[in-house]
Each structure stands twice: as structure tokens, then as C-alpha cells.
């Protein structure tokens, strides 16, 4: 399942996948795969992404 919320949050911050990847310390491929729902990130990576995008875990990763 695609993670549209993460993609929206990233574009709101005016960050490219590459820029977000660099800030978080992972590869662009990993960010792309998380947004596509093809890779489940670890909790540590989720938290790092949330902090960079100024969002909570619920905002980006909780499925209703």
C-alpha cells in the first residue's frame, strides 16, 4: 500500500526524495520504496523520517 501521506509531507517541506534520504541517512531508493509501500522501514527509520518532516508517527505511518 502506497504511503501517500509521507510523499505529501515531503513535498510540503519542498524536499526531493534525494534530499530527504540525505538528511535521514539512507539511500534515495529506500525513500522511494517506502513511499511505494514496497519496503517496511524500521521504527528508528520511521522516527528519523517523522522528525525530518516535522510529523508524528501517526501522521505518516498509522493506517486507519
Amino acid at each position: 500500500m502506497k504511503n501517500i501521506r509521507m510523499k505529501v509531507a515531503r513535498t510540503e517541506m519542498d524536499l526531493s526524495q534525494e534530499e530527504l534520504a540525505k538528511q535521514v541517512g539512507v539511500s534515495r531508493q529506500t525513500i522511494g520504496l517506502i513511499e511505494l509501500g514496497k519496503y517496511n522501514p524500521s521504527l528508528n527509520l520511521c522516527i528519523a523520517i517523522c522528525k525530518t518532516l516535522s510529523k508524528t508517527l501517526d501522521d505518516l505511518f498509522w493506517e486507519d
Partner: peptide, 16 residues
């Protein structure tokens, strides 16, 4: 392989 794996992605912002 990366391009193929990410091919569903319509995000063009890597060209920023």
C-alpha cells in the same frame, strides 16, 4: 534494477 523497482513512482522531483 533501481529504476525498474521504482518505476511505479511518478515522482519527478529527483530532477530538481
Amino acid at each position: 534494477a533501481v529504476e525498474k523497482e521504482l518505476e511505479d513512482d511518478q515522482d519527478q522531483d529527483e530532477h530538481k
